[in-house]
Design a protein around this nucleic acid. Structure first.
Length: 123
RNA sequence: CUACAAACCCGAGCUAUCGAGUUAUGAGCGAUCAUGAUUAGGAAAGUCCGGACAGCAUAGAGCAACCUACCGGCGAAUAACCGGCUUCAAGUUUACUUGAAAGAGAAAGUGCCGCAGAAAAUAACUACUCCCGAUCUAUCGGGAGAAAAGGUGAAAAUGUGAGGUAAGAGCUCACAGCAGUUGGUGGUAACAUCAGCAGCGGGUAAACCUUGGGUGCUGUAAUGCCACGUAUAGAGCCGUUUUAAGAGCUGCUCGCUCAAGGCUCAGGGUAGGCAGCAACAGGUAAACAGUAAUGUUUAUCGCAGAUAAAUGAUAGUUUAGAAACAGAAUCCGGCUUAUGAGGUUUGUAGAUUU
RNA sequence: GGUCCGGUGGCCGAGUGGCUAGGCAGAGCUCUGCAAAAGCUUCCACAGCGGUUCGAAUCCGCUCUGGACCU
């Protein structure tokens, strides 16, 4: 996700789920997207002052999402939805790849549940 | 060989699997896909200097402001790079080593120098010497001399010795120190050294200042272009061709030029794309010139280019070890700061062997 | 990305080169039957390193840190 407009929209009206140390903001959208899911990652510069550390965390988040994204894609394709997601790292210490590798699947499960409930209430 | 100091080098390589950015070629209407190539630093950092490049201005003059200050070299450029000179500091071997320097002018002027001290800068005061007068006979008053004595301070009118005198004084002499000036010698020069002349009136210019030199302002989010969009839109103020509101010369004044719309507030819209933007003060290697910075020649290479922002994950292996500081955002040169393990060179000290 | 400004006790804040004011807060004492108020005493500071100077919070350089503005 690279659009500034979508980003503002996400942070104003979007909802969130979190599995420590990662929080996911998400929003279903009617906007015309090229892909069913658009994803971004971020770290607060308040918690990590060095650009090296922030880049490291963003890379690990990207890699962890890449390896575990299949369930989310399947769900979204099955229900014909369009979703934008933003992963925020909220811990204040540098993580290692293994913990993220364990936590991201849990977060994605939770996200899918939320999406399911939303569509049920809307209908 | 060990320790210390300084300078410099390096800042992991390879294989497999799965990915990301850029780009070339091919395929596809297109989204995209396939194959190949390539993808972070020595500091990318701080932004302390200097440039390139771009926009505005180019009609200047004066004032102000800011920067700078030994000499030579190098270079696109620099107070910051290289070499030298001088001064200072430390160390010892006392003439060397290492380090530092914002290193023009205090004899153009103004200011400041707390406390202490007689006095912090035309010299005054106390005390000193001589003469005169008075008297209570060791004091007082007046005149003259003189700037040596006053012990405090960071700093006290160049220091020591001798002569000289009523007492004294660079008043005179010897030696030493300091800065000025003239000439000789060496050096491109700063400067060094020798001789003569006339001197010796603290410090502070990282206080104001003076002198010499320099600076137009702003910065790639600059700047140019394309697309989309709004309230056919509100309020207030100033002005409209002889006068002129206002704008530009970017701090001010004069002067000059342009000028029919301009300024402020409130609200609304957009926040997309292209160029700038990756081929040059280029990198690497060797040779040559130079003490060095640097330059020349030859060969060779094409070497990040994103925009919520790529350069990653896992496993194995090489190695004594893979750990430090740390992430490009227009580019380049220098400086400063952070930094792991190891290596090279030079110097000093110690030990051992010959 | 660029351009600037600041840092003085626990807090606020003055200080244009000569022992770092003042207020609030803290501690102790006085006052009171006990407290409050008041009074007295006391404690705790120049962001760090280096330079200029006899002497630096002040002047200069570097570092650290906080903030503002342009966009």
């Amino acid at each position: 996700m690279k659009s500034r407009k979508l980003m503002d929209q996400l942070f104003t009206v979007g909802k969130s789920v979190s599995v420590f140390p990662v929080k996911a903001m998400f929003n279903e959208t009617d906007a015309v997207l090229d892909f069913p899911v658009k994803v971004g990652v971020g770290v607060s510069s308040r918690n990590f002052k060095k650009a090296v550390d922030r880049n490291r965390i963003k890379r690990l988040l990207r890699e962890a999402y890449r390896l575990n994204k299949q369930p989310l894609l399947d769900f979204v394709n099955a229900n014909n939805k369009k979703v934008i997601v933003f992963f925020l790292f909220i811990d204040k210490t540098l993580p290692d790849f293994e913990t993220l590798q364990n936590k991201i699947p849990l977060l994605i499960d939770k996200l899918i549940k939320q999406l399911n409930e939303n569509s049920a209430t809307n209908n």
